[in-house]
Design a binder for these strands. Structure first.
Length: 418
RNA sequence: GGAGGCUUAGCGAAGCGGCCAAACGCAGCUGACUGUAAAUCAGUUCCUUCGGGUUCGGUGGUUCGAAUCCACCAGCCUCCA
């Protein structure tokens, strides 16, 4: 039986460690470990999910986990990984984001028993801190030259960095110290862009030195794609965990489309199956090149964890139907369940050109015409290259639906309104 | 405080009075091939009522005509103090 630390390492989930032996030691018996999540958007995306999944693994391995939602730090803005000063979020959207993110964390992590794990909001302690206390109790431990030497700060000296963002590091450090003292939390981890913040927290704990209990941190590598594309990005932006922002089908397709090398790496990162099972998958994949064994397994695994079995089956069915072009054989409710998530209402008699723009399948008329003339558009499975074509109920499925396809992978279901 | 240079489409980078809606590379999109992959090949990438309209850091000017010349402003870079 390998330890959770080594398992994470073998899965390629650990980049840097404050002191590898020490962290391995700490994780060899049940302990408390935390990671933070910024409420900078209404939903977390697949990049955040890597962190969440590590918490899930740690929790399954018997550790107590703490998920910190950055209600306070979110008000400041983390300069890490950013080339420009961020705009501050207003209170209302910050509050909405914080709540939404808490909900999402609760979906994947077990907070039923505080012994297993808790979610906390750092505004609970940072919010109460007075300016003077902040400067006396914490600021004193941060030499300016130490802070300036951090990559995060150094990289921004040219382009500019406000005092506000400069202070971010201290706030995250205070978080760690707080959890260390109150919750006996000795470990923190975060993305590799967080390295500066992670180590400064460690530094603070060391200096304040209220107990001799060890503390450690580790960072996770940036997950990338083998073909150089950014992880978790589609043309429309990030892949979100919220099903209403990114459909389970879109997630399924995203992973299904990944190249071979990436798929095998991602399996280690995202799958909760043992490394032994993954090894078998790899063997099967290599033996049946072209079957996309790894991609299928990967996509199914992720959608199942993210959205559950029912959503997975639907995503699979949609993929099956869409890529064999059999949607004409579906009945109305099946059609809706397959494409309902992509439905748009348009008036009957609309010009195909305009329909493409209305559905965002094309960004301008010029482009719409280019697609039509380039045989890229199909209506209910038939290629349509007439510019003058209008969408009518007579040709629609069940008297009102038109399945519009652009290229190979972009589908829209249009419901005609008279 | 002084001297010089730079700023072109998503990015990189040509163009230096008309032939410029602007070469080329990357990236994106579409088609062919394929494994819903990669590689490769082809097309395409400001908007349009297809007449034209709006672009080359910003604002004014010179000119029949400006991305190209001039003035001012802003940002970035190098050197001197």
């Amino acid at each position: 039986m390998i330890t959770i630390f080594d398992e994470l390492k073998q899965r390629g989930l650990i980049k840097d460690t404050s002191n590898e032996e020490e962290v391995r030691q700490l994780l060899s018996t049940p302990t408390t470990i935390y990671s933070g999540f910024d409420p900078s958007a209404i939903s977390m995306h697949l990049g955040n999910f890597v962190q969440i999944s590590i918490l899930m693994r740690l929790q399954q391995a018997g550790h107590r986990i703490i998920a910190v939602v950055g209600g306070a730090t979110g008000m400041i803005g983390d300069p890490s990984g950013k080339s420009k000063e961020r705009n501050l979020l207003n209170q209302a959207s910050l509050q909405a984001n914080t709540n939404a993110i808490k909900k999402q964390l609760e979906r994947y992590l077990d907070f039923s028993d505080p012994k297993k794990g808790i979610v906390v909001n750092n505004v609970d302690w940072l919010g109460k801190l007075s300016m003077i206390d902040y400067l006396r109790d914490y600021g004193k431990f941060f030499p300016i030259n130490y802070m300036l030497a951090k990559d995060v700060v150094a990289n921004r000296l040219e382009s500019g960095l406000s005092y506000t963002e400069f202070s971010y590091m201290l706030l995250q450090s205070i978080d760690f110290l707080h959890l260390y003292q109150r919750e006996g939390c000795q470990l923190q981890f975060g993305g590799s862009d967080q390295w500066g913040n992670l180590t400064s927290g460690l530094e603070l704990i060391r200096k304040v030195g209220t107990s001799d209990k060890k503390a450690g941190v580790f960072s996770t590598p940036l997950i990338t794609r083998n073909d150089g594309k950014k992880f978790g990005k589609t043309e429309d932006g990030a892949l979100f965990l919220d099903a209403s922002l990114t459909s389970p089908y879109a997630i399924y397709q995203y992973f299904y489309n990944v190249d071979d090398v990436t798929a095998l790496n991602y399996l280690k990162v995202f799958s909760f199956d043992s490394l032994q099972i993954l090894k078998d998958i790899e063997t099967q994949h290599q033996a049946n090149l072209g079957q996309r064994v790894a991609q299928k397994y990967l996509a199914a695994g992720i959608v199942k964890v993210l959205h559950g079995e029912a959503q997975l089956n639907e995503a699979k069915m949609m993929s099956e139907v869409l890529f064999t072009g059999q949607f004409k054989s579906l009945n109305e409710s099946q059609l809706l369940s397959v494409l309902g998530g992509l439905k748009v209402n348009l008036p009957e008699g609309i010009l195909l050109e305009d329909a493409l723009i209305q559905t965002s399948a094309a960004s301008s008329k010029r482009e719409a015409r280019e697609f039509i003339q380039g045989q890229s558009i199909s209506i209910n499975g038939e290629t349509m290259n007439q510019l003058s074509y209008t969408l009518k109920k007579e040709q629609a499925l069940f008297g009102k639906y038109v399945v519009l396809r652009r290229g190979k992978k972009l589908y829209v279901l249009i419901e005609l309104q008279s």
